[in-house]
Amino acid sequence: MSNPTSFCPVPKEQQPINEYQELQSSWFFGWVKLAPGKYITKLLWVGIWSLIATAPLAAASFPIAKYPIQFGICAIGGSSIFVALATVRLYLGWIYVKNRLYGESIFYEESGWYDGQNWLKTPEILTRDRLLVSYEIQPILKRIQTTFLTLLATMVSVIGYWVIIY
């Protein structure tokens, strides 16, 4: 049996299956494929490093000795914005590959931005790509969405608490 991608005119680096493999092996985008504890740890590290950046800003607005609760809310709130941005970036990368895999055709560039082409996938490649989306990428997207919704709920709770104390 021949390799179904052997007659594909799309350059190797622009084939969705190769984009998927590159994404899952990358340092940042591979986080989502880690065990839940390790994934959360990675996001917590983003939060800790961004807390280091946001704490001085929060301290400038709310001195720690005078307003400890407000300082904490501002510092953690600012830090969670960075975690949310990282989560959005994860989502955008994975949704791009999902759309490329799920589509019936592949847009690719032969030699530059000015000469793009569309290639209609063969039924074998389309089936393989859609199975990959169903069994590999959909759970990843679900995890990222859950992460983002958890962050959003936390932010809303913190804002609600802020409103109550003022």
Rank of each mutant, 00 (worst) to 15 (best):
N18A: 13
E136V: 07
C74Q: 06
M155D: 12
P56G: 07
S134V: 00
E136A: 09
K33C: 10
C74D: 02
Y20V: 03
K42A: 15
W162C: 05
T127D: 14
W31S: 12
D115P: 01
T154C: 10
Y108E: 08
S105C: 05
M1K: 08
Q138R: 12
S2V: 13
Y166D: 03
T147W: 03
P4E: 05
E104G: 06
C8W: 10
P36D: 15
Q15P: 05
C74K: 04
L57W: 02
W113R: 12
R143Q: 09
W113E: 13
A55Y: 02
Q21M: 15
Q24R: 14
W113C: 09
Y96E: 15
I164R: 05
W45H: 04
T146N: 13
K142I: 03
S2C: 01
L149K: 02
L34S: 15
L44A: 13
Q15S: 08
S50C: 06
L51C: 03
E13T: 13
W49H: 02
V133F: 11
Y67Q: 11
W113K: 12
A60D: 01
W49V: 07
T41W: 06
L85A: 13
T122D: 05
Q24S: 08
G78N: 03
K98E: 09
I159D: 03
Y135L: 07
Q117S: 11
V32C: 05
W45I: 06
F82T: 08
L92D: 09
I48V: 15
Y102M: 06
F82N: 07
V32K: 02
I137W: 05
V156R: 04
P11G: 14
I159F: 14
G77H: 00
K12W: 09
S25Q: 12
I64E: 01
L92M: 11
L151R: 06
K38G: 02
G72L: 12
F82G: 09
Q138K: 12
Y91A: 12
G160T: 07
Y20I: 05
A58F: 00
A53M: 10
Y166W: 08
I81H: 01
Y96K: 15
L132P: 01
Q24F: 00
K98S: 06
Y39I: 03
W119H: 15
V46W: 02
I125D: 05
S80R: 09
L131C: 07
A86S: 14
S105P: 00
G116P: 03
T154P: 00
P11M: 14
W119A: 10
Q21H: 13
F29R: 10
W45M: 08
G30S: 12
P36N: 12
L43V: 07
G37T: 08
I159E: 10
V88H: 04
T127N: 14
I40A: 09
T41M: 08
S25K: 12
L34V: 01
L101F: 04
I159V: 15
M1S: 13
L126E: 15
G93M: 07
